Amino acid sequence: MNDQQIRVQSLKYGNQLHYEWDTTLLEKTDAYIFVLGHRGRKLKHYTKGQVFTVEHWTIEFFPFDAWFTVSADIVDGKITQYYCNISQPAQFDENKVTFVDMDIDLVYRNGRWNVVDEDEFSENAIKYSYPPDLVRNVIHEQQSLEQRIEQGRFPFDGTIDRFIKMLPLEG
Rank of each mutant, 00 (worst) to 15 (best):
F64D: 00
D133H: 08
I160K: 03
P132Y: 09
D101Y: 06
D101F: 14
F62Q: 01
S129F: 00
A31R: 08
Q81P: 10
W57A: 10
I126C: 07
Y82D: 02
G111S: 10
M166R: 13
G40R: 14
S129W: 05
F52E: 13
F68Q: 04
M1H: 12
G37L: 06
A72I: 15
I164F: 02
E170W: 13
D93I: 14
L167V: 12
E20M: 07
I164D: 10
H140D: 11
F99T: 11
C84V: 09
D157G: 00
D65I: 08
S71T: 03
Y19N: 10
Q81L: 00
R112N: 02
I149Y: 00
I6K: 02
E55I: 02
R153S: 11
F68S: 06
T69P: 05
D157N: 04
S10Q: 07
R153H: 03
V100M: 13
T53P: 11
Q151C: 12
L134H: 05
W67P: 11
Q151S: 06
I149R: 04
H45W: 13
G171Q: 13
A90S: 04
G40D: 07
V8Q: 06
F61R: 02
R162Q: 12
F62G: 02
K44T: 11
G158R: 00
Y82W: 01
D73T: 14
Q151W: 11
G14R: 11
R41H: 11
T80F: 11
Q151Y: 03
I126T: 12
D117V: 10
I160W: 06
N137P: 00
Q9T: 15
K42Q: 04
D117E: 09
M1V: 07
Y46H: 15
T23F: 12
D133P: 01
V70F: 07
Q9R: 06
T80K: 08
